[in-house]
Design a binder for these strands. Structure first.
Length: 341
DNA sequence: ACATACGGAGGCGTTACGTCA
DNA sequence: GCTGACGTAACGCCTCCGTAT
């Protein structure tokens, strides 16, 4: 099972064997392949072809099922905004230090459980990230509207904890609805442009940073699963090849033993056995009393003898066409005939 | 046209938290 | 109630790329 994603030319989503073309931000088509019939440098597609050179090697996929593909409409890129750097080491502290622009609340007041941690830095100090465009979002999550469930209680407790010491990283589990919506969105596009991020955040009553993190983690999970699948597949390939190798080794041993005990193939007159190096049909040739030589396929010939002949002739080493092979056969028979004369 | 600096964005490894058995 | 495993939200750092200078 393969999952491949392609941003860009939606008309040729699965030409994974080709070098990924450099995509521009203007053609953000989206394709998703599910199946196993391609070699997919998947990740190389998810960033507009970036990292292609140094990362495509580890993204090779080999399998055989036909891929299922999903093509979506392109979405418009949003110009980046240049912002000052925004690294805040102790975001949980900054919550008390930095008030949100556009927020009517004072710092640390009306603190929602989802607003502790670095996201606050992101919004407060980060004021700076493109996400901050939505930093004044009302951060009253849907999970709280449910009211009275375990999660809400958890959330409330976390809030009070945070107010207690302000040193613990708070983590909020998204509601089922939020997760499901994000999941659906992820199915459509596994990366988000700022516009989409903002829209999603607004829709779900989350901060853009949360949406962004969710997508990052989701991509990571997808990749992990894919890696596991690939690993399993390679394992099976390895087992099959090992078996095949053992079988061939055994066969080789048998043939060697046969060769030392019964070197009949040396004694056989060349006219007795011949084989088309192309189709590998073993034939016997007989010389009639009139002197004409004919070659006929002999199905009763033993497999071992046939193999012996194959080995001694190494027919696979000659990339002959079928016609050439038969010509060769013909010539060798004529040669034998001439010799006999 | 080219070089450099800067900022945005995603990947990745890790940490911390929530849940469950 | 405690504990360990597991899932996942969040963090910090890195690299790459586009853009401004």
């Amino acid at each position: 099972m393969e999952l491949a994603l392609s941003l860009g030319d939606a008309s040729k989503p699965f030409k994974f064997l080709d070098k990924t073309p450099k995509l521009s931000s203007k053609d953000l088509g989206f394709c998703m392949g599910l199946g196993s019939g391609f070699t997919a440098p998947a990740r190389s597609h998810d960033k507009l072809g970036s990292h292609e050179n140094n990362r495509q090697e580890d993204e090779r996929r080999v399998s055989s099922d036909p891929p299922l593909q999903l093509v979506l409409l392109p979405f418009s890129p949003v110009p980046r905004r240049h912002q000052p750097p925004s690294k805040i080491r102790f975001p949980w502290l900054t919550d008390n230090l930095v008030s949100e622009p556009g927020s009517t609340e004072g710092p640390g007041r009306g603190f929602d459980v989802n607003r502790s941690s670095m996201d606050d830095a992101d919004e407060g100090a980060a004021l700076s990230s493109p996400n901050s465009a939505a930093s004044s979002f009302q951060v009253d999550f849907g999970i709280r509207s449910g009211g009275g469930n375990k999660r809400d209680l958890e959330a409330s407790r976390a809030t009070s904890d945070d107010e207690d010491n302000g040193l613990t990283r708070k983590k909020l589990r998204l509601s089922k609805e939020q997760s499901a919506f994000l999941e659906e969105s992820f199915k459509e596009h596994n990366t988000l442009n700022p516009k989409q991020k903002l829209a999603l955040a607004k829709q779900l009553n989350l901060r853009p940073r949360q949406v962004e993190v969710w997508f990052q983690n989701r991509r990571a999970r997808t990749k992990l699963k894919q890696t596991e699948v690939d690993c399993e597949y390679l394992k099976r390939c390895c087992e099959t090849l090992t078996k095949e190798n053992r079988r061939l080794q055994k066969e080789l041993q048998e043939l060697r033993a046969l060769k030392t005990s019964q070197p009949f193939y040396k004694q056989l007159p060349a006219t007795t056995l011949t084989m088309c190096p192309s189709c590998e049909r073993v034939a016997t040739t007989t010389t009639s009393s009139s002197g004409t030589t004919t070659a006929t396929t002999n199905p009763s010939i033993s497999t071992t003898a046939s193999k012996t002949l194959s080995l001694s002739a190494k027919p696979r080493l000659f990339p002959l066409s079928h016609g050439q092979a038969h010509k060769l056969l013909h010539y060798s028979q004529r040669l034998v005939k001439i010799k006999k004369k």
